[in-house]
Design a protein around this nucleic acid. Structure first.
Lengths: 232, 232
DNA sequence: CCTCATACCGGCAGGCTTGCCTGTTTGTAA
DNA sequence: TTACAAACAGGCAAGCCTGCCGGTATGAGG
């Protein structure tokens, strides 16, 4: 179950393949270089963290010269912002893929929760957290990350609508989905400091499991409740 | 409702009160110095973040010489570990205080949720997140933070038992409480990167509010369910 | 009152990082 | 083929940070 160190980038084609003397178009060259750099950045981010990652670490890992990086990303922040952008779009794509890959017979809320959690119990999400923390002081990075929350909500809603139609009409669905995302994020954050190496809040996830399995039951009662909401 | 910048430390006695020529015992001196240093560390942590905070920043803010810090904390990590320890114990104390301070008439789940959230929508929790992220590479810090998760669970359980006895016996109470903590943590984390300056996931918290208000209802149905748990 | 341990002070050297700068190679287009 | 622009290489200087060190002041004990 420990999904850790899942595909953060495309694993092949990276280790020790010098990009030399293969006669490629310039567009292909820059694309390869950017990919190399960005992937290395994301990996360093997950391993060493935002501010423990120097540009030297990155070029070393990418097997690229210092000047190459400077040529494609003028400043360190540019690099990290681009990496953040790449991470977000890559994840959005993988999100849809992984869900559409679920066999129609298995498209249950429980399975969906498992897949969803795999996105949080993941090296990429560690990188994501690093970026979120760092974005507090890097406006450019923040600008990249800001719309992410709503994007996630939209994509999740779409996935639910497509694959779990029985839940599609639920009254507070949007809030519920956002809640689950927040909960998983909190779990992942807590896992960073917790000594609980493999548990990763399995008990909490079990509780969530039970909760969603009960969703249909109390959805009926919801309509008859004196809406005492308006959050504090 | 924006609780931000709540009491991270004891605000009085800090600004510009030179500790000189007042004839105090040595024990008092070291205590004052440690407090000064640790408070400044925590403040810097919340404002600048873990690795944007240099020891110079700290001594500058604490109005203390560089040597003083070196004398009390041999290394930068020692300082941060001590600060983390201090933060944890201080928060635990404040946690109980704030809950016992609730007027008996107001001891409702809704009120409890509001108070609980105030602990996450808080400069101190920003510092906490910084420490959690940093602890990934600082074993000493990690050792300090590791037991925190269970401590929180224990304290929360105790508070519920004392002040919300009607919930005390609920079947999956422990999981539910941990879930709420994780959810709030995730909300706080997301708020770092979100442009949603003041919202802070109010909608999500509203959902949680509704959910707990329904807790008694479906707790009955829980016993009759084919336990298909064992989290994935 | 005197002595000593402890608390505190401020500067120095070593190491690391970033951004820039010059020089070389590669692709493209005339 | 030739000339130019873009891609790439690697070194340099300025700046900052940490840990340490000798020197001073202050409180404790005889």
């Amino acid at each position: 179950m420990g999904h850790r160190s899942a595909t953060l980038t495309t694993p092949p084609a990276r280790p020790h393949v010098p990009v030399k003397h293969i006669r490629r178009s310039q567009a292909a060259r820059v694309e390869a270089m950017r990919t190399r750099l960005l992937d290395a950045t994301l990996e360093c981010l997950a391993e060493r963290g935002y501010s423990n990652t120097s540009t030297n670490d990155i070029v070393r890992r990418a097997h690229v010269s210092r000047g190459a990086l400077a040529h494609h990303f003028r400043t360190r922040n540019d690099l990290f912002s681009a990496a953040a952008q790449r991470l977000i779009t890559a994840r959005a794509a993988e999100f849809r893929e992984r869900f559409t890959a679920i066999a129609p017979a298995r498209r249950t809320p429980a399975e969906a929760l498992t897949v969803l959690w795999s996105f949080y119990d993941d090296a990429a999400f560690v990188a994501m957290m690093e970026l979120m923390i760092a974005s507090r002081h890097e406006p450019e990075l923040r600008a990249v990350l800001a719309p992410m929350s709503d994007q996630i909500a939209d994509i999740t809603a779409a996935v639910v609508a497509d694959f779990l139609p029985e839940l599609a009409g639920l009254p507070l669905l949007d809030g519920a989905l956002r809640s689950i995302h927040a909960l998983f994020a909190g779990l992942a954050l807590g896992a960073l400091a917790s000594s609980d190496g493999q548990g990763r809040g399995a008990d909490v996830r079990a509780f969530v499991q039970v909760l969603v399995s009960l969703a249909p039951q109390f959805t009926a009662q919801l309509t008859a409740i004196p809406d005492s909401s308006e959050a504090p």
